[in-house]
Design a protein around this nucleic acid. Structure first.
Lengths: 218, 218
DNA sequence: TAGATTGTTAATCGATTAACAATC
DNA sequence: TAGATTGTTAATCGATTAACAATC
């Protein structure tokens, strides 16, 4: 019965761009700007203006105004709401080595709705310590603790040899989404979401673009 | 005049999948398997078999053999060659904090053709130290040293406030490709390749998939 | 031979971009 | 009013998938 717009049918490509819009809009807000046009966003972010309008239309409650553009603060609130930045999801971190420390230490995740509540490691020397304010527990406790805390998201930051068993433990504990930083393909049940942070893939794409650029200059 | 197949027209999507094939094939090779079928790869990696065949066809020198499949070792060599894994590209790392340390410490980049030759930081306490075998230099030396070493790739792992100036210095030094781990949009000249490692975008996509899964179970 | 597996052509799908009328 | 900017419809582009004949 509300005037809530349905927020389905937002394409995956659009979802991937929303965080960039969010950062951009926050900058504009900080700079004191009240409205911003899709053409300006497109130019600054090197996107197509129609694409920006479509992306924003798919999540904005208020339409943009001809001549004025979009209300910055409203858009930020809309993206917050759509991406769930305004309510925290608990997550656990598996692996308290270099990458794990960097992830736990990066305070920014809270702004993105992610709250790391515990870390796990097999190394006894790390168990009991704290990284970025997160306590490190023994790997054996993983499944039990995850279940007790009712955590649905697991972050894997262990060496590749240990990644599959980390995934298995997370699944055993009841996690439903895995953010995988290890360079291996994980085998998990079909009803578990996996997002691979494939650095090698990123690097491959960057290298090819570099090669193209150098080549075009001959 | 050679029988070299042209390796152009390999789609971006395909390039992004090649590292995953590479890892998969390496596993199979280690397990002593000589050939592998596209159907097996597709099943294990949760891809479509036709897609796998097209991807492999675009970079393989030898076609697959009906009934047998593809020669594992040959495919690995083909991907090595195509992605440049067999010759190292030098890169510099800007930022020797948590993330920078994790990146420098991750030895795996060499396998992906990336050789980090120097790191830079503004913090005097970090200058002169070594992270992951890479020496940390003062930020003021960045442009000069990058130019002298003729480095074409820069990795940005600094806090977001410092990312734009890091990019400016890299460009000044002659870098032509930037791998950006800071959550900000960088403004660089058009002839510079930028690849943003947008964690927030990954997280957004994972969160939405999680929401879908939970929703589908109602 | 029979059947597993290939490569290719055509159909489908999803995302991007172009064109343009509507409007503040 | 004139013009900047919007939202929408149609065209294009690129990637994925289905269908199927070729082949070892």
């Amino acid at each position: 019965m509300g005037n809530e717009k349905e927020l389905l049918n937002v394409s995956k490509a659009t979802i991937g761009r929303l965080p960039a819009y969010h950062r951009y809009l926050q900058e504009k807000l900080d700079a004191g700007e009240k409205t911003v046009s899709s053409t300006a966003i497109a130019e600054d972010l090197r996107l197509n203006a129609v694409q920006v309008r479509k992306d924003l239309a798919s999540i904005a409650r208020e339409a943009g105004k001809p001549k004025l553009g979009f209300a910055v603060a409203d858009l930020i609130a809309d993206i917050d709401r759509f991406l769930g930045y305004d309510n925290l999801n608990d997550a656990v971190l598996v692996g308290a080595g270099g990458l794990g420390k960097a992830l736990a230490g990066y305070g920014g995740f809270k702004h993105y709705g992610l709250n790391i509540v515990a870390a796990f490691d097999t190394d006894p020397a790390r168990v009991g310590t704290s990284i970025g304010g997160v306590k490190v527990f023994a790997a054996e406790e993983l499944a039990r603790l995850v279940r007790r805390l009712n955590v649905l998201i697991g972050i894997i930051a262990v060496p590749k040899e240990a990644a599959q068993s980390a995934a298995d433990e997370l699944v055993k504990g009841g996690v439903r989404a895995i953010w995988n930083f290890a360079p291996v393909h994980l085998n998990v049940p079909a009803n578990i979401a996996v997002k691979n942070e494939d650095m090698a893939a990123s690097l491959a794409i960057l290298s090819k673009r570099l090669a193209e650029i150098l080549n075009s200059e001959k």
